[in-house]
Every structure is written in structure tokens, then in C-alpha cells.
Amino acid sequence: MTGTEVTGTEVTSTEMVKTTYREAMRDAIREALQRDDRVFLMGEDVGRYGGCFAVSLGLLAEFGPERIRDTPLSESAFVGAGIGAALAGMRPIVEIMTVNFSLLALDQIMNNAATLLHMSGGQCNVPLVIRMTTGAGRQVAAQHSHSLEGWYAHIPGIRVLAPATLADARGMLWTALQDPDPVLIFEHGSLYNMPGTLPADAGAVDIRSAAVRRAGTDVSLITYGGTLGTTCAAADALAGDGIDAEVVDLRSLRPLDDETISGSVARTHRAVVVDEGWRTGSLAAEVCARLMEQAFWDLDAPAERVCGAEVPMPYPRHLEEAALPRAEAIVAAARRAVGGGLT
């Protein structure tokens, strides 16, 4: 069962509606607010301003300032308050403008949200959802552009999600809110304007499994979030060369769906992991390590990584582009894997 199937062949009778990633996310928040009166949204500029990426635009008028709650610039305080409210029975959705600013709340996320359950001997679970924007691509330089979801995926006690499709933008939030533990949702800033269609009754999706976005036989391109599009473009380019690439979207970065990942590599025997985060100690490194542990005998070539360059993001466009995983680099890595492999 994969997340995509919810909006794929199983749903046949409903009408399709045009939407964007941003609107899908907004619809998900609206639905949560309508279905569960314990849910509220809180964060900087989510109300009057409409959200720094306009995700919550219009929700203040619909739900009022108690449930669409503007906060001061106090990341540690309002994330911590979200944890407290969750402990006390609410279902907060906390929005942090970008992952770089989440570092001001890292203490609360790591030392409280992820830890309370264990150190209370199972008494204090934290049913909290934290959403934040991640990633580069808008020339906003070295304090606004990073992909630190891999760091968060290091932390036991939280779930880390990366919706890369409209269906996941629409469907992950509700499922995350049903989870008894803290869930972090990373929305890549380049995705908000992504257009497409969804069934009118699109809703919850599973948040446990990876999804095969494109089936192939020659090489597994494994990625998530903002680089799914680039990776699919690379798969198209490879098809032109007669290389049939499979594309795996991780969807859940913690826990990882080992079965889907290893299953894909068992079919293709080659893997290229694409990750916008810095290479050293990256999520891509974790995926490669697991392939070594779990799929070593299936591999016909060393697993490849295409990651972000190890540099705080420079401002100029040409340097930012050079710092990010590009389709050409993915294609080259896939060719190396296929060409260098055993036959």
C-alpha cells in the first residue's frame, strides 16, 4: 500500500479538481480544524499576514484568532507551548516559517517533544504536528535555504515527513494529527506553486510507507521532497538513453520504509540516492548504509549519492544552482551505476 494509491487507481468515481500544493496544504489544515475542535494553528504571521508562504491565507476569517493564532517572534516559546498544549489534550499544528528558524526551537523539539514520553516512563506522549518550510532555490542565501530534515530524522521519538506531491500535501496532515507522537512535516519552498489535480474527496494518506513514483528495472533513484521533480526529470532523460529508472519517494524520513527501498533495489540492483541536504552525515548516507546492511547482495554497483554541496548557501543564482542536486548529476550517477555494474 502506498500513499499515491489513495489518489490513484482506487479512486475512480470522484470528480477531479484543480489545485496547487499550497492550496492542498491549506485544505488539509481547514479540514483538520473542521473535524477536530482540539486542533488549532499557531505560528508567526499565520493569521493577519496569511502565512509567510500564504498557506493559511483566509483561514483567520474562517476560524478566528483563537484557532488561527499569530505568535510573536518566539520560536522556542511557541513550539514549547505547542508541546505543552498537546500534553494537555489539544492537537496543535505549529508552523515555523523556515527550517533555519526552527533551530531556535531545537531545544524544545529535541529535549522535550522527542524525549518526554521516554523520560516519563511512557506517561507523557506529545501528539503535536510541526510544519515548516525547507530547502533552497529562491536565492535567499545562507540563513534561509537549508535542508535540515536529515538532522531531525536523527532523533528517536519524532516522525519526519516530506510531502512531495499534491496528494501528500493534502493527506499527510490528518494522519499526522492522529499520531500519538510528534510529527514534523517539511514542505519544500519550491513546491508551493506546483499545480495539478486531486479528487474532490481527497483526504488522509498513510505516513509510514515510501512510494514508487515511477516503475523501472535498471536503477533505483531514491529521493524525497523538493528533489522528487528533479529526479523524475532525470529518469525521463535516462529513458531517452534506454535506461529504465525506478523513482522511489521516501515520504517518511523517520522511520524509513526499508521494505520499499530494499524491494526496489532488489529489482534494479543499482541505487542513486538524491538529497538536497549536505552530503556528510546526510539522510542519503543513512539510506546508503541501510542498503549496505539490507541489500548488499542485491547490488551490482556501489550505491551513488547526489547531495547538496557542503557550503552555506551562496546568494548568486549560478552558485546556488551549482550547490543543489541537478538532473544532469543524477543522470551521470545513474549511468555510472548502470555502466559500472556487473552484467
Partner: peptide, 11 residues
Amino acid sequence: YAMGTALVRAQ
């Protein structure tokens, strides 16, 4: 103002 948040609503 801090972005769209007026002083009176933040302090």
C-alpha cells in the same frame, strides 16, 4: 510591525 504582526499583538 514585525512582518505582518503589529506591536500590540506581539508584545
